[in-house]
């Protein structure tokens, strides 16, 4: 990927979403990818959420120790998870698990002429390969984000009760006082944006492979690097726009 790819990259997801194809078939592939990206990522997201909840609670407890009331622990942990760590770390987990794999899979299809074969039988490769993946990730990532936040908060509350004596009720009181609905929906909007662009990175890198096995490996690496950078850039953009 180079500077020449910027415009085609930005156009790519929209060309894919508006590509012609049979709706019912696209829907079936969309469901298959929901399973791949969503259901099969649940365990990973739960594990990540478990440790993120622990670390966030420990760090927050250290920051507020002896200075602020105990319910601030819930406030700090909840706010951090909701607006920042949840969307970003869920996206990072899915970049590692799904984005690199989709770049490698589509890249292999490209170098083995399977994408040309799709065109030869009058199937639009963007409709067949890109559209259902983008849509499936748009659904999966926000839901996994919600799961990650829920797991982290529960583990955080439990840890706070056991090790800092912060009652769970106090922890959750802090979480909702004050509660800004904006924090809640921004978390999901960010997840949606991350989903859209990290999937685009994976699919685009796969579609643009030329060569052999080495190039497929490079495409997978490129997809991970590009999508990681994109998440951080979009995170900054969202921070400046919403807060």
């Amino acid at each position: 990927m180079g500077i020449r790819d910027v415009i085609p990259f930005l156009k790519f997801p929209f060309q894919s979403l508006f590509s012609p194809g049979k709706g019912a078939k696209t829907f079936r592939r969309f469901i298959d990818h929901i399973y791949d990206f969503g259901v099969e990522s649940i365990l990973l997201v739960v594990i990540v959420g478990f440790f993120v909840g622990l670390v966030t609670t420990v760090q927050s407890a250290y920051q507020i120790s002896n200075m602020l009331p105990k319910y601030f622990l819930g406030l700090t942990v909840g706010r951090m998870l909701m607006i920042e760590l949840g969307p970003v770390l869920t996206a990072m987990a899915l970049i590692g698990r799904c984005v690199s794999a989709m770049a490698a899979e589509i890249g292999t299809m490209k170098v083995t002429e399977q994408i040309d074969a799709l065109k030869s039988i009058k199937i639009d490769p963007k409709n067949y390969l890109a559209k259902p993946r983008i849509l499936a990730m748009l659904v999966s990532l926000p839901l996994l984000n919600a799961l990650m936040i829920a797991v982290s908060l529960c583990i955080g509350a439990l840890y706070a009760q056991i090790f800092y004596g912060t009652n769970t009720q106090v922890f959750f009181y802090g979480l909702t006082h004050p509660f800004y609905p904006r924090d809640f929906w921004v978390s999901f909007v960010k997840s949606g944006f991350f989903a859209f662009w990290i999937t685009t990175a994976g699919v685009y890198c796969g579609f643009n492979v030329s060569g052999g096995a080495r190039d497929v490996g490079k495409a997978a690496t490129d997809a991970v690097v590009i999508s990681t950078v994109l998440v951080l850039v979009l995170d900054f953009v969202a921070a400046t726009l919403f807060f």
Partner: peptide, 20 residues
Amino acid sequence: ALFDSMSVEQNIRLPLEESS
């Protein structure tokens, strides 16, 4: 250039299945 994630039958059917 067969679709290697599919069976032989799925490969053969695909052009017609994708047509409405």
